[in-house]
Amino acid sequence: MGTRKGTAVTRSVRKRTEGVPRLAVWKFASCDGCQLTLLDCEDELLSVAAEVEIAYFLEASSAPGPGPYDLSLVEGSITTPEDLERIQHVRRVSKHLVTIGACATAGGIQALRDFGDVREFAAVVYARPGYIATLDRSTPISANVPVDFELRGCPIDKRQLLEVISAFLAGRRPVVPAHSVCVECKARGNACVMVAHGTPCLGPVTQAGCGALCPAFDRGCYGCFGPMESPNARALNKQLRALGMSTPELVRVYRTFNATAEPFRQASESAENSREADDDA
């Protein structure tokens, strides 16, 4: 974990003038995937806005920018008391706060801790667990401060990130629908891998956003964008078992990403508790 003094990097994409939208990017406990997506799309940002100013606060100890920011993108989940203070500061200095990635919206892979004892986990990872100030649970940002929008995905999708940024700067609703992956899958013209090949697919319970990438390559969706708006995991599980998925496989697939997103947590726990086909009930 970063203890050295961090630096805040402020980059003006093109020269700074008044009235330029100000973006801030804040990192909390997470894997690094999402932030890389952002670093990766500065060029595209120029296509949505002639000028933007972006400040990066990638380490917990980097001096918090005074703001105000038009839009703050927050990545990661809240795991320490310091995180909590920091996120409250971010909320105060931001007009809009958008969380990005599975970690920020659902606790993410960090939240796998929720399924075991966190001190035990710390003992394995750190030599002197007593010094680790770890909150007992990893919580999503929205459990701590009001959030204007949550962008899902692990890692997030570059196209969707650009859409959210341009939508907030233009004052419209982002086109990030909460329906299933199947909508995109059919629009794209994929043949359904469940129906045509018997390949298990989480697409029907997973939120769209990736453009149905996995089915386009004849693989089942593994749920990386988190639960869709009205997931019926119980009904899907029954079908997945009929296609030959075992209990451990079911548990694993729901727990890989977005493990604490409520419907997926329930789906994995019900699969685990039942061993056999409880879902028929």
Binding site: H179, C182, V183, K186, A187, C192, N232, A235
Partner: peptide
């Protein structure tokens, strides 16, 4: 409704 996934596939095809 207990069996339906609201996945939209029926309407799309």
């Amino acid at each position: 409704a207990s069996r339906c996934l609201s996945c939209t596939n029926c309407t799309m095809v």
